[in-house]
Amino acid sequence: MPDEQPPRPAEPTLAEFREFVLNAAQERPGPGFWQSMYQDHYVRTVVGAADAYADHVGAPAVHARTGDPNPTDTDPLDAVRDIAAGYAADGADTRDDYLDRLADELTLDDVRALRIAGEAAVAATPRVIWAESDRGKKPPRIADEIGLTVSRVYQILRERPTAGEQPAGTAEERRRWAREYRKRHNGDAQ
Rank of each mutant, 00 (worst) to 15 (best):
D68Y: 07
E159F: 08
D104M: 06
G30N: 09
A171Q: 09
N70W: 13
Y42H: 12
A61S: 07
P60F: 01
V46G: 05
G136P: 00
Q39R: 02
A131C: 02
V21I: 14
P76G: 13
A113C: 03
D188M: 03
A121E: 05
A178W: 06
M1R: 10
G91R: 03
W177S: 01
H56C: 07
Q155H: 09
R28L: 14
Q190Y: 14
V150I: 08
P167V: 07
G32E: 02
E165Y: 01
A89M: 14
A131P: 00
A189G: 08
Y87H: 12
R81D: 12
A178K: 06
A171C: 04
F17N: 12
G48F: 00
G147K: 01
P69E: 03
V122R: 13
D82V: 07
L102K: 03
D51G: 12
A103H: 04
W130P: 01
D3K: 05
G91L: 02
R127I: 02
H63V: 01
N23I: 13
E16A: 14
E27Q: 09
P7C: 06
T45E: 08
R18V: 02
R179H: 09
R115M: 13
D73G: 12
R141A: 11
D73E: 14
A89G: 10
D51V: 15
P31F: 13
P60M: 07
G118V: 01
E132K: 12
V122I: 09
T94E: 05
E159T: 04
F33K: 08
E145R: 14
G30W: 02
L14D: 10
E19F: 07
T162D: 15
K138T: 10
K137T: 14
T66C: 09
A89W: 09
R175G: 12
D75W: 08
V122H: 10
P126M: 03
G118H: 00
L108G: 13
E145V: 00
P71R: 08
A54L: 01
A121N: 05
K183A: 11
Q166K: 11
A54Q: 11
P167S: 07
F20G: 14
G30L: 06
E145C: 04
V153G: 04
P71V: 11
G187P: 05
K138A: 13
T13R: 10
A79E: 15
E165S: 04
A24C: 10
A121V: 01
E173V: 01
R152E: 13
S133H: 10
A88T: 08
R141Q: 10
R160D: 00
E4R: 04
